[in-house]
């Protein structure tokens, strides 16, 4: 007969998996609320750094935490491996394209913003749009490609090291086949 303090060693995986699913959904809800809050604040009060930093901290810290944990546990490498198995384009390539598109998006946004806020005539708004967009492209596209690329490479390197450490007992050399 089990004593009162004796614990059952078998955990109910179904409950644990469902709880993890709920936690994931909660995170998505929190992230969606933060993004929605940012949009509403921008529309109602205009751009102000003081207004957005709570949401920014929630979004950035949670993303940063995921990156640190996933690279520390080595699952980032596994994610890249699985992605590259299933996709024609490698994750490294997609990251570079993401940096490029993000740079184009930011440049275009600044261009439109300058044309709308500061131009007095149609011709001037076109000129401002082209000028600001071009300068923003020159600054942001290389910057974002480098930042995204370096972050990706650093995360991959850290994750690969974690995998090597975790598998270091393994004497199997057949990965070099």
């Amino acid at each position: 007969m089990k004593s009162f303090f004796q614990r059952n060693k078998v955990k109910d995986e179904r409950i644990t998996n469902l709880q993890n699913k709920i936690y994931r959904e909660i995170f998505l809800i929190v992230a969606a609320i933060c993004v929605l809050s940012l949009i509403i604040k921008q529309l109602n009060h205009g751009y102000s750094e003081a207004n957005i930093w709570t949401e920014a901290v929630i979004l950035l810290v949670s993303s940063f935490y995921y990156m640190i944990r996933s690279t520390g546990l080595g699952i980032f490498s596994a994610e890249v491996e699985l992605h590259n198995q299933a996709s024609k384009r490698s994750m490294a390539f997609k990251n570079i394209v993401f940096g490029l598109l993000f740079g184009i998006g930011i440049g275009t946004f600044f261009g439109i913003r300058s044309a709308v806020l500061y131009a007095d005539s149609t011709l001037q708004s076109i000129y401002y749009f082209l000028l600001v967009s071009l300068v923003s492209f020159i600054i942001y596209i290389p910057f974002l490609i480098v930042v995204v690329g370096i972050t990706y490479l650093a995360a991959k390197k850290r994750s690969d090291r974690a995998v090597e450490k975790e598998l270091e007992d393994d004497q199997d050399q057949d990965e070099h086949k």
């Binding site: 491996e81 699985l82 995998v163 975790e166 393994d170 990965e175």
Partner: peptide, 24 residues
């Protein structure tokens, strides 16, 4: 089969196959 080849056929990462073989 290498760990990588088995992983690919099963649809998981090489790390997962390695950890199963290690009992981790």
């Amino acid at each position: 089969l290498s760990q990588e080849e088995l992983a690919k056929q099963v649809g998981v990462s090489r790390q997962t196959i390695g950890l199963i073989e290690l009992g981790k």
